[in-house]
Each structure stands twice: as C-alpha cells, then as structure tokens.
Computed example of a mutant assay.
Amino acid sequence: MCGNNMSAPLPAIVPAAKKATAAVIFLHGLGDTGHGWAEAFAGVRSQHIKYICPHAPVMPVSLNMNMTMPSWFDIIGLSPDAQEDEAGIKQAAENVKSLVEQEVKNGIPSHRIILGGFSQGGALALYTALTTQQKLAGVLALSCWLPLRTTFPQGSINCVNKDIPILQCHGDCDPLVPLMFGSLTSERLKTMINPANVTFKTYAGMMHSSCIEEMMDAKQFIDKHLPSVD
C-alpha cells in the first residue's frame, strides 16, 4: 500500500453488518488518518457494505516546508498552475488499485466498489478511477480537484470508467481548495466522461470540512450505486 514505507498501519475498516457484497474505499486528506472517516461512515453505513479507510504513508510535504505528515503524494503548491508530483501521484494510484484488487480477491467485484476521498484523497480517487482498467461503481469526490489534468487527452476518455457516476461535493467557503477549483474540475470531468453522470453539489457556509448534509448526500449516492443484492 505504501511504496517504500511499509510501516503505515492497516486501514481503518467498518465491516459490513452482514455478508459484504460491496465496498467503499475512502482516502483521507493531507495530514489526517482514516480513523475519522471510518467513524463518519459508521454513522451512515448500510448493512451489506464494507467501508475501508486506509492511512497514507508519512512523507515530507513541500507545501508544509518539508515537514513529514501522512500524505498520498507530495504537494508543491495549491494554485491551479502549481507544479505537481507526477511520479508520486502515479505511484499512489497504483497503491489504490492494489487495494481494489485485494477486495476483488476477498470476493467483492470491482464494479461493486466505490472509490472516494476528501481533499488530497479525493484528488487521488478521481485520478485513479480515470486511469485504472478496473471497472468501478462510482467516485465520491469531496472538496478536491483533478490532479495531472493536463496529462489527460482533450475530449472524452476511452477507459472502462467513461460512464462512471461521480458525486463531487464542495463547501462554498473553502479557504484551502477554493470552490472555483471544484467547479473547474466538474466542468473538465464533463468533457471526459458522460456529463450526465457528473453531479456537483455545494454547501453554504462549509469550509474545508464535511457536514451532516454532505454525509447524507454521500450515503444516498453510495446506496444508489451499491444496492443490496439480497
């Protein structure tokens, strides 16, 4: 999961209340761990879904004066034209694909798995879904952006997830990842995949965080695309 850093702890997991027939893999933001998101999903979970909240490896982050902290890849700057850690993003995406593969081995097909994340984790979830050969059930992208956007071809992409449903959520008072980044990402996504499948929701007064309304929208999206198969 962690490239060269084998010390990252095992993911925080909210097991299904009965047999798991679907999964959500949700990636936390910079400097965080999976525990808080596991708690959040435990409060809105559905019985047949397993929620997996991995922890990022600890690494120096350029944006924070090279201080070490949990991070999926290096962040050099937050402006739209900032240099990006292309090698780190691509390696992190491979690690996420390995997590999906692990769940497939556990008996959950990839088309019954939603990838999601918050901020840096949401960025990684979007990038992974648009570059993987694993057919996924959807992407839950909270307060984030599309990394390496200039590396994608103009126009619609030809990948297994070109019709994937994406729910993007963003606070209109976000000081770290401004709402404009979210709306520009949404417009870019609509040129790449079926535009009818991209939903962009904003939350009045929400900063770089989550809220109950957003979690209920997330639950509705998850339950719609990962219905019980009993």
Rank of each mutant, 00 (worst) to 15 (best):
L146H: 01
M206S: 00
P11W: 07
Q154S: 14
F152S: 04
K18P: 01
I157T: 12
C159W: 09
K224W: 05
A42R: 14
G155V: 04
T185Q: 03
K219H: 13
L179M: 13
P153K: 12
C53N: 12
R45K: 15
L78R: 11
H55D: 11
P60M: 10
Q168P: 04
S228Q: 12
F41G: 00
C169A: 08
G117H: 03
A92L: 10
L189N: 04
G77S: 11
D74T: 10
A141P: 06
K105W: 07
P227C: 02
S71F: 14
V14M: 00
S71Y: 14
S186N: 04
W37C: 03
G36W: 05
G31C: 02
I193M: 06
D172Q: 05
W72F: 09
C211T: 12
V177D: 01
G107W: 13
P54L: 09
E214L: 05
L126W: 03
G36L: 13
G107M: 14
T150C: 02
P80H: 06
V61Y: 09
I76P: 03
K135L: 11
S119K: 05
Q133F: 11
P178Q: 05
Q47I: 13
S119M: 05
E84I: 07
P60L: 08
K19C: 02
T33Q: 03
A92K: 07
L179K: 06
F41C: 01
